[in-house]
Design a protein around this nucleic acid. Structure first.
Length: 685
DNA sequence: GAGCACTGC
């Protein structure tokens, strides 16, 4: 990468992004694009122009006088790049590294790059970065960008974060599970280590919440330990429009509104938010029909969602030709993960699709719920980045007033095994009393404790077991997957299990061309790899064939496989193998084609997820007798239904679907998990 | 016949 300190306009064809895309390499991988309105100015002039510049002394003053500082400011005000440099210039680095966490890999990498070039350096000198697969730092590194996962890993080795003088949690308002875990732990550390300063950086108005969380003021010591600084943004005003009456069909209304804007308004691209892929495609098709019928060729209509093939995703970042208006119809991906340049009009359908964990059935559901006020504001903000914009909310003003302030943080609606493992490994004994920013439902915690107990990761006192519990906590894997890897060492099949795990980490290796002819060819190609033992063994087949054929792009092209994702699986596999072999002492043996050993090993890790075929022709879980179906993407979907299966994931949408299936034998359950399944269990097959 | 978005020495 170039080290020259020159202004940089980040655009899709940057080599830099190309390499990062390769490194990331999942099909739903997305690149963050930073729109820089002052890209023609030199770097110093640009820094001077940032709104945050005026707050430099105030920030430094507050950090001297308070342990925690909540920084509120809009995206683009320069918080993420400038605050670490202010601290460095003031000398905070002499007391320890200035650490900044980001929720996404791409953000950490691009910010580190940006700050390094502002300093006329390359990443790895004063400014370092640490994310999975990328580690660039030196003894002189004083500012370090990282993902939240990395900070958590570092806490496992250095529970008081003694290497750091300041920790900045960027984008805290997103409230990911890892953000909330970090915040809870930082609060604990802050009480023990008063010298550690914490900056919580947040885009919305939940500043009071964060301030209260970190305020240790008591009657005895009545001084606030946390304070808030609000930074004025440089966003343009956004005018808001509501519907007079609620609309019956927000997809149709989105289309109508977009066409109305196109007819009435002058220049400016449109961004519409819908909840899922299906709705996006539906709206795009309706718009295209209209555009064709009108006979005018003045609209560029583009879909944007996570599983859209990479080339199609990139299209939204290019400007439309002169005289043509761009309409991007997107899922939530455009709310935080990507920034589309040139947007002036936003259409907000008022709903969002969220994953929700149900502790009674241990299932995840994808549910469509009304957005929160904060999310609606975030969506509106997408209209004011270039010039004054307009947002059209497809609901009434009264509906808006009745929306919840915040979307429930992920911590309150997700499965918690990994969170519990992390906290236990850090010596938090009573998880139920841990100071979460937003405590998860006790039921969810208990479900996680039960699962971990069944996996032998926790003992009857709820303490981490040695070696299983500690080993699982060290693994960058979900608990059941980790257990499977652990057992594979004893069963002599770790070589194959590692491959299966790596392949499951990358979503979707089978490419699905958008043309009709290609779709059929793709399906035929997939069938070549499919085996009746199920999806996991099929993935093993794909990877083995990929490696045997030299891991080439050509092989992937011929077989309708996504090269980027297989390459990523290969990298993940190497990293996991290194960890398993060298750090966790898992012996690396191959089962030499003995598929039964593999299926048994899968059973040993995922035994709670067993289902049997009821005589009614529908599957049921063994532990809860809940009705389930095979997901249509499974290799088993079109085959004769086996009597017993293990699934890796359950997802409630139109039905309760099992995903990532493996065919097993009933007796393996009692053989491999006698504490969980009894031979006497009578089933009504 | 179906897929909100992220992440891990």
């Amino acid at each position: 990468m170039s080290s020259i300190a020159k202004p940089k306009f980040l655009k899709p064809d940057d080599d830099y992004f190309a390499s990062e895309r390769d490194a990331q390499a999942t099909d739903n991988q997305v690149t963050t694009f930073v729109f820089n309105a002052h890209h023609s100015l030199n770097i110093d002039a640009q820094r001077e122009r940032l709104p945050i510049r005026k707050y430099r002394d105030h920030i430094l003053y507050c950090l001297e006088n308070f342990q925690t500082l909540v920084l509120v400011g809009e995206t683009g005000c320069g918080k993420s790049t400038q605050v670490p440099q202010f601290l460095y210039e003031f000398g905070w680095h002499t007391k320890g590294i200035i650490g900044i966490t980001e929720p996404r890999r791409v953000s950490a990498v691009t910010l580190a790059d940006r700050v390094a070039s502002e300093r006329g350096e390359i990443v790895g000198q004063t400014v370092g970065v640490s994310v999975r697969f990328i580690d660039k730092f030196s003894p002189n590194t004083h500012i370090k960008y990282m993902t939240e996962g990395i900070l958590l890993r570092e806490m496992l080795g250095d529970p008081l974060l003694t290497k750091y003088s300041v920790i900045i949690i960027d984008e805290a308002h997103e409230r990911n599970t890892l953000t909330d875990t970090s915040l809870g732990l930082l609060k604990k550390i802050a009480k023990k280590r008063e010298s550690l300063k914490i900056i919580i950086s947040s885009a919305t108005i939940d500043a009071e919440f964060f301030k209260d969380f970190f305020n240790f003021k008591t009657k005895k010591s009545p001084k606030d330990t946390a304070t808030i600084i609000s930074i004025e943004g440089r966003m343009h005003p956004v005018e808001t429009f509501y519907l007079r009456d609620p609309c019956p069909d927000y997809v149709q209304e989105t289309v109508n509104t977009a066409l109305k804007i196109h007819k009435k308004e002058r220049n400016g691209d449109i961004l519409a938010f819908l909840t899922g892929q299906e709705e996006v495609i539906q709206a795009v098709n309706l718009l295209k029909d209209h555009s064709e019928a009108s006979g005018r060729d003045d609209l560029l209509i583009l879909p944007m969602y996570g599983t859209l093939p990479n080339n199609d995703q990139l299209k939204v970042f290019f400007g439309a030709p002169k005289g043509i208006r761009k309409i991007v119809v997107a899922t939530n991906i455009a709310e935080t993960s990507i920034t589309i340049p040139g947007i002036v009009f936003v259409i907000d359908c008022g709903f969002v699709k969220l994953k929700w964990f149900n502790p009674e059935s241990s299932t995840d559901s994808l549910v469509i719920v009304p957005v929160s006020k904060a999310a609606a504001e975030q969506r509106s903000g997408r209209a004011g980045r270039v010039k004054p914009g307009k947002v059209y909310r497809l609901y009434t003003e009264e509906d808006f007033e009745n929306l919840p302030d915040q979307t429930p943080p992920e911590m309150r609606r997700t499965e918690l095994c990994s969170t519990v493992l992390h906290l236990k490994a850090l010596g938090i004994d009573n998880i139920l009393r841990f100071n979460f920013p937003s405590p998860p439902p006790a039921k969810n915690l208990l479900a996680a404790l039960e699962t971990l107990y069944a996996l032998d990761a926790l003992d009857e006192n709820g303490d981490l077991t040695q070696p299983i519990g500690y080993t699982l906590a060290e693994m960058p894997l979900d608990a059941m997957m980790g257990k499977m890897l652990y057992v594979s060492g004893q069963m002599g099949c770790a070589v194959e299990i590692l491959t299966i795990i790596a392949m499951m980490q990358v979503q979707n290796v089978f490419s699905k061309p958008s043309t009709g002819q290609g779709q059929i060819k793709g399906r035929v190609a997939k069938r070549n790899f499919e085996v009746e033992e199920g999806d996991l063994i099929t993935l093993l087949n794909v990877y083995t064939a990929f490696v045997e054929n030299g891991r080439t792009k050509e092989f992937c092209g011929q077989n309708f496989l996504i090269y980027r994702n297989l390459k990523r699986a290969h990298e993940l596999r190497s990293q996991l193998e290194n960890l398993a072999q060298n750090k966790l002492g898992i012996p690396m043996f191959s089962c030499q084609g003995d598929i039964d050993v593999l299926r048994k090993c899968i059973t040993a890790g995922f035994f709670p997820n067993a289902a049997y075929l009821h005589h009614s022709g529908v599957y049921r879980t063994i532990r809860g007798n809940t009705e389930l179906s095979i997901h249509p993407i499974s290799t088993l979907y079109t085959l004769q239904q086996p009597q017993f299966v293990i699934f890796c994931e359950l997802l409630q949408t139109t039905q309760l679907f099992m995903k990532d299936l493996t065919v097993i034998k009933e007796e393996w359950l009692t053989e491999l998990a006698p504490h969980y399944y009894h031979k006497t269990t009578v089933r009504d097959y």
